[in-house]
Deep mutational scan, measured.
Amino acid sequence: KRYRAVYDYSAADEDEVSFQDGDTIVNVQQIDDGWMYGTVERTGDTGMLPANYVEAI
């Protein structure tokens, strides 16, 4: 699945990823209600991200 960031996010922990509004997130997997795991296409960084900061595309 592919998602697009709708807000900027700065990683708060080493297992999270930072991204900017408009970034595409690929290979996304749902972890639980609030978190997903995926790769930021622009940077190649992979990690956890907050589900409410992205939307499906």
Rank of each mutant, 00 (worst) to 15 (best):
I25V: 07
T24C: 12
Y7V: 09
A12V: 12
Q20F: 13
T24E: 10
A56T: 09
A5E: 00
T46F: 07
T43F: 02
D32K: 14
Y3A: 03
G22R: 04
K1P: 10
T43H: 02
V6W: 06
V40C: 04
V17A: 05
V17N: 00
T43V: 02
Q30C: 14
E55H: 09
D32G: 13
G47D: 00
E16A: 07
R2S: 09
E16G: 10
Y37D: 03
M48A: 07
D13L: 10
D8M: 09
Y9I: 01
F19H: 00
D45P: 01
T43W: 02
R42P: 04
T24H: 10
D32W: 11
A56Y: 12
Q20E: 09
G47Q: 02
E14Q: 11
L49F: 15
Y3R: 03
G34F: 15
E14M: 11
L49T: 01
R42E: 06
Q20V: 14
D13Y: 12
M36E: 01
V26C: 10
Y53R: 09
M48H: 08
R42K: 07
V17E: 01
N27I: 13
Y9E: 00
L49I: 14
T24F: 14
V6R: 12
T24P: 04
Y37P: 02
F19S: 02
G44T: 04
G47S: 00
Y53G: 08
D23N: 02
D45S: 10
D33Y: 09
S10Y: 13
G22Y: 04
A51S: 12
Q20P: 00
G38E: 03
Y9G: 00
V40A: 02
R4E: 03
A12H: 12
A11T: 05
S10K: 13
K1C: 14
V54A: 05
S18T: 08
V6E: 03
F19T: 03
D8T: 13
Y7K: 15
D23G: 00
I57A: 07
Y7S: 13
V28T: 07
E14H: 11
G38I: 03
Y37E: 05
I57Y: 10
V6M: 13
Y3D: 00
M48E: 04
A56S: 10
I57N: 05
T39D: 02
A12P: 05
D23F: 03
V40T: 01
I57W: 11
I57F: 10
E16I: 05
V40G: 01
V28E: 02
A56W: 11
M36R: 03
G44C: 08
D13T: 15
E16T: 07
E55M: 12
D13S: 15
W35Q: 04
M48G: 04
I57P: 04
V54P: 00
W35G: 03
E16H: 12
E55K: 12
A5N: 00
Q29A: 10
K1T: 12
N52M: 12
A56V: 13
G34K: 15
R2L: 10
K1L: 13
D23P: 00
T46D: 04
D15E: 11
